[in-house]
Computed example of a mutant assay.
Amino acid sequence: MGKLPKVVAHRGSSDDSPEHTLAAYRRAIEAGADGLECDVRLTADGHLVCVHDRRIERTSNGHGVLSTMRLAELEAFDWGSWKNPWADLDDEADLPSPDLRKVLTLETLLSTVRDAGRPVELAIETKHPTRYAGLVERRLIEALDRYGWAHPKVGTESPVRVMSFSWLSLRRLRVLAPGLRTVLLMDRVPLRFRDGSLPTGVSYAGPSLEIVTAHPEYVDRAHKHGHQVHVWTVNAEADVRHCHDIGVDAIISDRPAATLKTLAQMSALRG
Results as ranks from 00 to 15, higher is better:
Gly2Lys: 14
Leu4Cys: 13
Ala9Phe: 09
Asp16Val: 13
Pro18Gly: 14
Thr21Phe: 13
Gly32Leu: 04
Val40Lys: 00
Arg41Pro: 02
Leu42Tyr: 03
Leu48His: 01
His52Leu: 05
Arg55Ser: 14
Thr59Leu: 14
Arg70Asn: 12
Ala72His: 08
Leu74Gly: 00
Phe77Glu: 02
Phe77His: 06
Trp79Asp: 05
Gly80Leu: 04
Ser81Tyr: 10
Trp82Cys: 02
Trp82Ala: 03
Trp82Pro: 11
Asn84Thr: 07
Trp86Arg: 15
Trp86Lys: 12
Asp88Gly: 14
Leu89Cys: 11
Asp91Thr: 15
Glu92Gln: 15
Glu92Tyr: 15
Ala93Lys: 09
Leu95Pro: 07
Ser97Ile: 03
Thr105Phe: 03
Leu106Asp: 01
Gly117Tyr: 02
Lys127Asp: 03
Tyr132Val: 03
Ala133Ser: 06
Ala133Val: 07
Glu137His: 08
Glu142Met: 04
Ala143Arg: 02
Leu144Met: 00
Asp145Phe: 05
Gly148Thr: 06
Glu157Tyr: 12
Arg161Phe: 11
Trp167Val: 04
Ser169Glu: 00
Leu170His: 04
Leu185His: 04
Leu185Arg: 03
Asp187His: 10
Val189Asp: 02
Leu191Ile: 10
Phe193Pro: 09
Leu198Arg: 06
Gly201Lys: 09
Gly201Phe: 04
Ala205Trp: 02
Ala205Arg: 02
Ser208Met: 11
Ala214Pro: 09
Tyr218Glu: 11
Val219Leu: 05
Gly226Ala: 07
Val231Asp: 03
Trp232Val: 04
Thr233Tyr: 10
Glu237Met: 07
Asp239Ile: 11
Asp239Trp: 12
Arg241Val: 07
Asp245Leu: 14
Ile246Thr: 10
Ile252Val: 10
Asp254Gly: 04
Arg255Asp: 12
Pro256Ala: 04
Pro256Lys: 02
Pro256Val: 03
Ala257Val: 13
Lys261Gln: 09
Thr262Ser: 13
Ala264Val: 14
Gln265Tyr: 14
Met266Glu: 03
